[in-house]
Design a protein around this nucleic acid. Sequence first.
DNA 1: TAAAACTTTAACAAAACTGTGGCAATTATG
DNA 2: CATAATTGCCACAGTTTTGTTAAAGTTTTA
Lengths: 237, 237
Amino acid sequence: MAIKILIADDEPNQLELLSFNLGKAGYEVIRAEDGQQALDIIEDSHPDLVILDWMMPHISGIELCRTLRSRPETRHLPVILLSARGDECDRTLGLDIGADDYISKPFSPRELVSRVTALLRRSRPALIDDVLEFHDLVLNQTTMEITRADQPVALGPKECRLLAILMERPGRVLSRAQLLDLVWGHNVYVEERTVDVHMSRLRKAINQPSKNGTVYSDLIRTVRGSGYALKAPSDSD
Amino acid sequence: MAIKILIADDEPNQLELLSFNLGKAGYEVIRAEDGQQALDIIEDSHPDLVILDWMMPHISGIELCRTLRSRPETRHLPVILLSARGDECDRTLGLDIGADDYISKPFSPRELVSRVTALLRRSRPALIDDVLEFHDLVLNQTTMEITRADQPVALGPKECRLLAILMERPGRVLSRAQLLDLVWGHNVYVEERTVDVHMSRLRKAINQPSKNGTVYSDLIRTVRGSGYALKAPSDSD
DNA sequence: TAAAACTTTAACAAAACTGTGGCAATTATG
DNA sequence: CATAATTGCCACAGTTTTGTTAAAGTTTTA
């Protein structure tokens, strides 16, 4: 599945230039021509990263960035701000508002792509590195091999994806609804309790993978009333 | 615990300037004067972020960055590269090598601090995001972890929410009716006395969290006839 | 000082939540 | 086509959480 990047810019030339370069670098590009449209698309197609022009009609990049940061479901969505003005005040304002990076025009295509990649590596390592690690768990997304303490672990597709989602956000609590959305996709109807069942299967699989009798500690934390998260075992257990 | 930042630069003035500004911004700064020393310090004191000068004797920033990226234990350590030259080639090289950000001299203190904060936000979400603090109490709403004086505290969902509501308004007195509204929602009928019970449970939980016999002071203030509020302990209790 | 007003907290039953074996349906796999 | 694997759901059991009540403790008021 290609990495989706949303670009919002009201200037067609600019939009074209950006799309072309990111497309060439292998990203799937979605375009928006103003802030409102961008917001709709974000809600709808869950891009992995967004690039916002500072100045746009209706909703400016800054406003949009603020909005995104204020909503739980987009709070961690990587945002790059784009501005014609290079002055420092804008720069710091952009970053302080919660943008993850700031590029001032004119910029080189190379730099743009580098910054996008660097930001993705930081925020969604799975998309770039395709090896996820947590404690002694390793998940290679290319080969779909999973190991715990170097012992192979067998997982079904759903459990595997579930694990990947958790490992991309180590420690963060995800509600059943969020997990359904992230793992199953957001137009599939399944019971929330089904998450529990898969979590149970996942636990069983990763907590006793090896043949020798070693017992592993539970890396999955149930947060009563909220959902599930990964947790590093404390010294006591 | 303060966030530790390592700065490696062979030029004393530069080092001083950086330290001063980051120190003022509330970070704990550790200094290194060349790449080798930086490496030693990283292994030794586990900084949360490092700032590397591009040109340094013995081991350059670029080399050091490569080294860090190649080791599992520092693979995800946030790195900012610093360079005298602003040309794009360096810029993209730096980012491609795995640095998380790149700042070219001369830079403004404001921008530096903004970039550091932005980088920390995305690499160590727990340090920046969704965290409520009051005195020695910390409530991380992302991971749903609560600690008092760094000791974990176990809370049920209701108590947790109650605490969050109080911590969002430190010191302000909230009536039982307000608390019912904020915590339970405004179309639920529960006895006002119930608030007392939960407050009592909350107190018990946060005022004696640790195993060692330490006794913590009561952070919750009962305002007779009005309601409850958080209070910082005075010196006497 | 006694009564009144208010708060704390133990106890308990009800409600809510979670873990998991089992089952049928569906989907790969050989 | 037969067999195995995967998936979603139900239902029961076991826990934890929650709301209420009531008794006991404090503070304020008259």
